[in-house]
Amino acid sequence: MPPRRADAERNRGRILEVARAGFAEGAVLSMAEIARRADVGMATLYRNFPGRQDLLEALYTDQVDAVCAAAASPEGETAGERLLAWVLRFAEFFASKHQIAAELLAQAEGPGPVLDRSRERVLAAGRPLLAAAQEAGEIRGDLTLEQVLDMVIAVSAIHGDPEYSRPILATALDGLRVS
């Protein structure tokens, strides 16, 4: 594809920013409302995102990109600290994108290729962190990354605000450490 014009790229970015903010607020914005808030016409919106599914997939993919990038340079002095810092980043991602993923699942009537590819990308990004932490003897060796992330997803599904679930997640992550 030819490179996008600067104004077209700005419009696309503004649309994504507005939609991301709306979902962060917990709002379900119509495509018309997204266009209005982004100060673009409907034609511009649909030129960038032919349907709501395309917009949701773009939002989800952007966040998956960020989670995968975070695995390349996680914070922490030890392998175990780096893994746990990245797992917390994943937890934040999952909590903030749960509504988008739920809408994608509902529209596609199943996980679909974007969610499947995203899960595989996240697992591929995190596996080296888990392997290093397990090899260092800091994290239990009897768990896979799939199990660790499924645990995080389960804790994130607990109803309540983040202040309520944060200590539950911390306790669950403490259970990953080798005593």
Rank of each mutant, 00 (worst) to 15 (best):
R10I: 12
F93R: 06
R166N: 09
L129V: 08
D65F: 06
A32N: 09
Q99R: 14
P113F: 02
D174L: 15
E138Q: 15
M151S: 07
G76T: 10
G41L: 03
E33L: 10
A102R: 13
T61L: 06
A66E: 14
D39G: 07
C68A: 15
E103R: 09
F49W: 06
L83I: 13
A136D: 02
G112A: 06
L176H: 03
A91Q: 12
A124P: 03
R127K: 12
R119G: 03
L169V: 01
V67K: 10
G160T: 08
R52L: 01
L45P: 03
G26H: 05
R89A: 15
L88R: 15
P113H: 07
R36F: 01
E75G: 13
I139H: 06
I34E: 02
P162Q: 10
R127L: 11
D54S: 14
A19I: 04
G110N: 07
W86G: 09
L176E: 03
D161E: 14
T61Y: 02
A132I: 11
L115C: 07
D116G: 01
N48Q: 14
R119Q: 13
E81M: 06
G80T: 11
G26Y: 05
L55T: 02
E33F: 00
T44D: 04
R47G: 10
E57L: 02
L115V: 12
L55V: 04
L129C: 08
F93M: 08
A131Q: 15
T78E: 05
R166F: 03
I139D: 05
E25M: 10
Q99H: 08
P167D: 11
R36S: 07
G141I: 13
G41V: 03
Q99M: 11
K97I: 00
P50E: 07
E135F: 08
P3F: 09
R52C: 04
K97D: 09
D39E: 14
I139Y: 04
S156I: 00
E17P: 00
I168T: 03
R36M: 04
G160Q: 11
G26F: 05
N48M: 04
Q99E: 11
I139T: 09
A170N: 09
R5W: 03
L143I: 09
G76P: 08
F23M: 10
L59K: 07
E57S: 08
A108M: 08
A24Q: 11
I158K: 00
G137M: 03
Q53G: 04
A19K: 05
E33G: 00
V152I: 07
L169W: 02
Q99W: 00
S165E: 04
A106C: 01
C68I: 08
F90H: 15
G126K: 12
E138P: 09
A66P: 03
R12M: 02
A170Q: 12
D39R: 13
A172I: 06
V152C: 04
G110L: 06
P128F: 10
A72P: 00
V148P: 00
P167W: 11
A8T: 13
R47S: 11
D174V: 10
P111Q: 09
V122S: 04
P113G: 08
L143M: 08
G76K: 04
P128S: 14
A101P: 00
Y46N: 05
F23H: 12
F93D: 05
P3W: 13
A24R: 14
S165W: 14
E57Q: 12
S73V: 08
L83A: 14
I100W: 02
V18H: 02
Y60P: 01
A106F: 01
